[in-house]
Design a protein around this nucleic acid. Structure first.
Lengths: 177, 177
DNA sequence: TCGATCTATATCGGACCTATATAGATGCAG
DNA sequence: CTGCATCTATATAGGTCCGATATAGATCGA
């Protein structure tokens, strides 16, 4: 699922600038299991334009850089749907926190507790964010995806609350100093 | 959490070749929330060697390329622990499946059901894999991380089983053809 | 009114992954 | 018992993507 495909998908829901595409990941319901940076969005949109999958219109604004508003073309739409009919790449979940827990025995208890607190806090915020944006305007897909996110985050919080004591006791003698 | 740090961490548990480091992600309990490819592991080990964080001994084998066995140095060990004391990068969970569900209305029901079946199958396999490698030899950290993985996978399976019907009914008129 | 944040585009360097090349060993199916 | 697939093992090239940075005027709150 490369950035070009992600951009095409978002443009099926309406025209947008590169900036707005990025904001969708941060503000709305899209954000939790897909992301892309400016450094890949802008080149992706240029290439999609070259390939004829999107069109641009430059809205010139006084004393500001042009707003480049992108629209998906019929070709782009077919291309996007075709990409959803091909086998999907697998999920990729990278968690520096989980990796760090494998080495809890090398760290002072206070650091392990700190990591747990920070992580629990972050997941709690993501959950709160999902709940905030849980309004009636959501499409069926968005509701489903929100529910998915909530299920995952709640499971993580439950597990960590129930089992954090086990990992907080993992220090070996020399790390406990 | 870059690949160099990941390699250092694994080498705190014992010497290994680049190949063995990669295999640890595939076979053992490490695999679910951390990964690295050969294309990044080999350059990482070279650079760690240059920096003095690991040492290599080449075990020459008859009619085979040398096995390059890497060991972490005391400097490398301090460096690794120092990196765990710094703030951790946030989790990054990319899910093409979740992204695709946002566009269920553009797809035929059969394709949405197929995606769900494939995804449920993959998560089920990951869960089974975690359960297989759940033996007494695991360290405290590994047990904790296995439990974390199980909690996440079970939550996903429960959610999808309970809510798949909602997304399977999302097709708009033109996509249902 | 001054600084911070926001809108908006863009590029560079570096990190990382995928695919590929090489090559002998081993194991299994026919 | 033979041939094909898989495994051990290292390595690189090409391409994708992210993080940091640059630019620059607008807006908003202290």
């Amino acid at each position: 699922m490369d950035v070009r495909t992600i951009c095409l998908g978002i443009l099926t829901r309406g025209d947008a600038t590169g900036y707005e595409i990025k904001k969708l990941f941060e503000d709305d319901g899209y954000q939790h299991f897909v992301e892309a940076s400016f450094g890949s969005i802008y080149p992706a949109l240029n290439r999609l334009t070259d390939e004829g999958y999107v069109s641009v219109r430059a809205e010139s604004q006084e004393k500001r850089p042009d707003r480049k508003v992108y629209s998906i073309t019929p070709t782009g739409r077919s291309q996007f749907i075709a990409s959803l009919l091909k086998p999907l790449p697998e999920d990729r979940h990278r968690s520096p926190f989980v990796f760090a827990m494998l080495f809890a025995d090398l760290l002072p208890t206070s650091r392990v507790s700190g990591m747990l607190n920070t992580y629990i806090d972050q997941v709690g915020q993501k959950l709160a964010h999902l709940n905030e944006h849980n309004d009636a305007s959501q499409s069926g897909g968005e509701k489903f995806v929100s529910g998915f996110g909530r299920a995952v985050y709640v499971a993580i919080l439950d597990f960590l609350t129930a089992h954090r004591a086990e990992i907080e006791e993992q220090q070996s003698a020399q790390a406990a100093e």
